[in-house]
């Protein structure tokens, strides 16, 4: 409960800070939603040309992906905004503040920052889901569950990728590119990928667990597969947290002058 309270407190204070500049706040949130909408137009044209199915994915299935991804991504950067800046926090010595506070380091560090455009992503994901999906309890429940799981996995992956900064000095570019790759992969029908590449998508870039299988479960529910998927998600997050803590022993801090924005 204390940890949920902490996340909520950070959310409140970050939202208050963002709203200090109302015009920027609104334009960032709305801008992100508009940006996402342009891609929907692409898919409408695509399905108009290709017919009702692309590699087993209907237009509705693709829209499920396009609802799930912005919501999962949005949650990960709104509530855990520092997850995209972990390398910078490490190499510029900004972990000090969090290490001196009596809260779990990873959660405290991740939750202390918010990326405002993520609010636009979240709103967009929800609206698109409501507009394109049948609103059954099962589908709504799975949508919420998979969104949270996707957010957790995206955060776990960023922790994993960025933790290489502890060992290599600066892995920021690598981590950003790797995280971006996963985001790109989850926006396309998983069935277009075949062969050994899928192993890559189950491990280093695990789009399979956070996007492809959730769509399969929406198409045809399978409890065993759901548990396997959630288990894989937990493993990914655990790997990220473990690598971070093992890297922490190499943390060298720093004297960079900084402020909390």
């Amino acid at each position: 409960m204390k940890l949920i309270r902490l996340v909520c407190d950070y959310f409140r204070i970050n939202l208050a800070a963002a709203m200090e500049y109302r015009a920027a706040f609104l334009s960032q949130a709305i801008g992100m939603a508009v940006n996402n909408s342009a891609f929907i137009l692409f898919w409408i044209i695509m399905y108009h040309q290709a017919g009702p199915s692309i590699e087993g994915y209907s237009f509705r299935d693709v829209m499920f992906l396009w609802s799930l991804a912005p919501l999962g991504f949005g949650i990960s950067i709104v509530f855990f905004g520092n997850s995209v800046s972990i390398s910078k926090l490490i190499y510029s010595g900004e972990l000090d503040v969090y290490m001196l506070q009596p809260k779990p380091l990873v959660l405290n560090m991740l939750a202390s920052k918010m990326y405002v455009p993520g609010l636009g992503d979240m709103a967009y994901g929800v609206i698109l889901f409501l507009a394109t999906q049948p609103l059954t309890l099962t589908r709504i429940g799975l949508f919420v569950l998979f969104s949270l799981a996707m957010a957790a996995v995206l955060i776990g992956l960023r922790l994993f990728y960025h933790s290489f900064t502890f060992f290599f000095g600066n892995a920021e570019e690598f981590a950003s590119m790797a995280a971006e790759s996963v985001l790109s992969l989850i926006l396309y029908p998983g069935t277009i990928f075949k062969g050994p590449v899928l192993w890559l998508f189950r491990t280093l870039f695990p789009a399979v667990w956070i996007a492809y299988i959730p769509v399969r479960l929406i198409q045809s529910f399978d409890l065993a597969l759901l548990f396997i998927t959630l288990g894989a998600d937990i493993l990914i997050v655990t790997a990220g947290v473990m690598l971070f803590y093992s890297g922490l022993k190499h943390y060298e801090s720093g004297n960079r002058i900084g402020a909390r924005m």
């Binding site: 800070a17 900004e94 503040v97 002058i257």
Partner: peptide, 16 residues
């Protein structure tokens, strides 16, 4: 740490 702040720059100190 004189060089590092734990206050939110855009918010009043009471919030931090």
């Amino acid at each position: 740490f004189g060089q590092k702040s734990q206050l939110w720059y855009h918010l009043p100190p009471i919030d931090s």
